[in-house]
Computed example of a mutant assay.
Amino acid sequence: MATSRRVARVSELIKREVSQMLLSGIKDDRVGSGIVSVTDVQVAGDLQHAKIFVSIYGTSEAKAETMAGLKSATGFVRSELGQRIRLRRTPEVIFLEDSSLERGDKVLSLLSRLSQERELADHTDEADEGGAED
């Protein structure tokens, strides 16, 4: 069992290397159909498995294509990681779609809409009160 500090360091290394691969290493055209970024990497305590969370910007078809391309490139990614990061055993790689950015964006838009509605309600209340005094 690796220390939590080592696990964190390995996950940061994997995140950086996979991000580089997404820019220039993976030749699958499906991966380029959406804008892809690595948001997080979770490495198991025994360093045998790595879950790579990716955020994909684009249509749902582009997201599906990109995920299919990433899943087919897992062998390439693992072998590249083995060459770039010196570990006794290269972890198994699993790509997962991270939709937290979309959920956050949705929450922010809902909050701004509520804020606008409150301001509008406050202005109409002030106008009603101002009209009643005259």
Rank of each mutant, 00 (worst) to 15 (best):
A2P: 12
T3R: 02
T3F: 01
S4A: 14
S11Q: 07
L13T: 06
L13Q: 12
K15H: 05
R16Q: 05
E17I: 04
E17S: 04
V18N: 02
S24I: 13
D28V: 00
D28I: 00
D29Y: 13
D29E: 13
D29Q: 13
R30G: 00
V31F: 04
G32A: 09
I35K: 10
I35W: 12
V36D: 01
V36F: 03
S37L: 01
S37K: 04
T39K: 03
V43H: 00
A44C: 03
G45V: 07
D46A: 00
L47T: 07
L47H: 00
Q48T: 08
K51W: 02
K51Q: 08
I52H: 00
I52R: 04
V54K: 07
I56R: 06
Y57I: 13
T59S: 04
S60D: 14
S60H: 07
A62H: 06
A64N: 00
T66C: 07
M67T: 00
A68Q: 02
G69K: 01
L70A: 04
S72D: 12
A73T: 02
T74D: 13
T74F: 10
G75H: 06
F76R: 05
R78Y: 02
S79N: 14
E80G: 08
G82R: 06
R86H: 11
R86P: 10
R86F: 05
R88M: 07
R88C: 05
R88K: 04
F95A: 03
D98P: 02
D98W: 03
S99Q: 15
S99E: 15
S99D: 15
S100T: 05
L101M: 12
L101D: 11
E102N: 09
R103E: 11
R103P: 12
K106N: 13
V107D: 08
V107L: 12
L108E: 15
S109Y: 13
S109R: 15
L110E: 13
L110Q: 13
L111W: 03
L111T: 04
L111P: 07
S112D: 15
S112Y: 12
R113E: 14
L114S: 15
L114K: 08
Q116F: 06
E119V: 11
E119N: 11
H123N: 14
T124H: 11
T124L: 11
D125T: 13
D125F: 12
E126S: 10
E129W: 10
G130C: 15
G131F: 15
E133V: 14
E133H: 09
E133R: 09
D134L: 14
